[in-house]
Amino acid sequence: MDAIDKVILGELVRDGRLSFRDLAARVRLSPTATAERVRRLTESGVISGFRAEVDLAALGRPLRAYIDVRLRPGPDHADLEAALLTLPAVLECVHVTGRWDYTLTVACRDVVELDELVMALPRAYGSVETDTRLLLRTVEGSGAPSISALLA
């Protein structure tokens, strides 16, 4: 990966919908050469996909939270992982190290739905302890665009 590839990645992180023509103008290559570089970056796995950013509040799920989950020791958690990901509120389920086994990222309609989810974790999913943190706001500039700093 050379300096031009890094600029291409930075531009695509900022705006994944750029046309090859617009991207080419920003990196001072032809659209064909730019498209070829994006194809190579995709085939090599550096670019893993292009996604739409969704406003969860506009979808009726304005309440976001992280839920740390500790489970009983023992059984394989594959069934639990699959079950959690079928819940509409669960956006992400991450297996982590440390005191907790999983961290869930959830988007709920309201506190009632969040409460129901937290209460279901021990009954239906075998958690022995949870810790819930509400997301108050996202600091501007955090998230995917910060990847640009890695490309410098």
Rank of each mutant, 00 (worst) to 15 (best):
T34D: 10
A52Y: 13
G98L: 09
R37I: 03
M119W: 11
P122A: 08
F20I: 12
V111C: 08
A78Y: 05
L134E: 10
R61P: 00
F20M: 15
L104N: 04
I67Q: 01
A35N: 02
P31T: 11
A120W: 00
L85M: 12
L84Q: 00
S19W: 14
R40W: 03
R37Q: 00
A107Y: 01
I47V: 13
P73I: 04
L121W: 02
Y66T: 12
E53S: 13
Y125C: 05
W100H: 03
G126N: 03
C108L: 11
S127K: 07
L114P: 05
R64H: 12
G45N: 06
A82G: 09
R17F: 09
P88Q: 07
P122Y: 07
R99L: 14
T132S: 08
V90P: 00
R72M: 12
S19R: 15
M119H: 14
G16I: 07
E81N: 12
V90A: 02
A58D: 05
R72A: 14
R51I: 13
A57R: 13
F20E: 06
V46Y: 15
R70I: 06
L59K: 12
R28M: 14
E129M: 03
G49Q: 07
R99D: 13
E36T: 06
R51T: 05
G126W: 06
R26Q: 04
L135N: 11
Y66Q: 13
G49W: 15
V112P: 07
D68Q: 15
Y102E: 06
E53D: 10
V27W: 02
D79W: 10
L85W: 12
D15E: 13
L63C: 03
V38N: 01
D76L: 12
A52S: 15
L135F: 09
R133F: 07
R72H: 15
E43N: 04
L135G: 13
L85S: 03
L91F: 04
P31L: 09
M119Y: 06
P31F: 12
L80K: 04
D79T: 08
R109N: 05
L41K: 00
V118D: 09
H77G: 04
R99M: 14
L29V: 08
S44K: 04
Y102T: 11
T130R: 01
V94L: 14
S127W: 02
V90H: 04
L117R: 02
P88A: 15
A57F: 06
V27D: 00
T132M: 00
H77D: 07
R40M: 02
A65E: 00
Y125W: 15
L117K: 01
G60H: 07
P31Q: 07
D76E: 14
D101C: 04
D55W: 05
F50E: 03
A25H: 01
T132L: 00
L117H: 08
V54M: 10
E113Q: 09
A35I: 00
R28C: 15
L18K: 09
A33Y: 05
Y102K: 08
W100D: 05
L114K: 01
R39F: 06
A25Y: 01
A78P: 06
E116I: 09
L134S: 11
G16M: 07
D15N: 12
E92F: 02
A33T: 01
P75S: 13
M119I: 15
R70Y: 05
T86S: 07
I47T: 00
V90Q: 05
D101F: 00
V96K: 12
S19E: 11
R70N: 03
E53C: 08
D68A: 09
